[in-house]
């Protein structure tokens, strides 16, 4: 490849960010919106969050019940497979540990499911131990619909397609089942530090 466009440069990484930015990523101060489909608009009175599958009694919270659970403020870097990273993003949400508190299960895997039909799969271990939340607030405001509101999954240690927007629940499974993008070419696990973007990486 010999041709170079005179005067064209990639977006720059901010100085002092080395070590925080996974390989192949650049830092942005925007918050790009990427969607696999139209934004759902579910009224809160119809919203529930469920835990189903390998569990004795499925669990379900209405919006009011969900918001009555203890929540936390979370500050994390997030990394999108489309190569942008956003540092020190601030969220408010309920830890998955809180939602799974007291749940006994033989499941090792989870499929998170959302309004609009989107799904994504993860090992259950990646949702526990303070690594994942159901987030309803971003930057001190209610999470906007285009960014996944009223609530989205937040799993910052994996590429952000795993942080399913408009999440409605988790299905606990003994076997691993690829979600939407995992079945269509993205990597099954998605560790940004190993650049696991696509199937076979």
């Amino acid at each position: 490849m010999s041709f170079v466009s005179r005067g064209f440069h990639r977006r720059h990484t901010e100085p002092g960010q080395e070590g925080r930015v996974p390989p192949g990523q650049y830092v942005t101060t925007d918050f790009p919106v990427l969607s696999a489909g139209p934004t759902p608009h579910r009224p809160l009175e119809n919203w529930t969050f469920s835990i189903t599958g390998e569990i004795d009694e499925p669990l379900r919270w209405t919006w009011d019940e969900f918001r009555a659970l203890p929540s936390e403020n979370i500050t994390k870097d997030i990394h999108c497979v489309t190569k942008w990273s956003k540092l020190d993003t601030r969220w408010e949400g309920v830890s998955i540990d809180t939602l799974l508190d007291g749940v006994e299960t033989s499941a090792e895997f989870v499929v998170a499911f959302s309004d609009g039909g989107y799904t994504t799969n993860l090992p259950l271990a990646d949702l526990k131990g303070g690594k994942a939340w159901v987030a309803f607030g971003f930057e001190d405001e209610p999470l906007e619909p285009e960014h996944g509101g009223p609530a989205r999954l937040l799993v910052p240690h994996l590429y952000f397609w795993k942080s399913a927007k408009w999440v409605r629940g988790l299905q606990l499974r003994e076997d691993d089942e690829p979600g939407f993008w995992e079945g269509y070419g993205y990597h099954n696990y998605g560790d940004p530090w190993l650049e696991q973007r696509y199937a076979g990486d």
């Binding site: 969607s35 696999a36 139209p38 993008w181 993205y186």
Partner: peptide, 11 residues
Amino acid sequence: VYAYAPGAVVR
């Protein structure tokens, strides 16, 4: 077409 570069979803 929902452009989700590097993916696209065709509905």
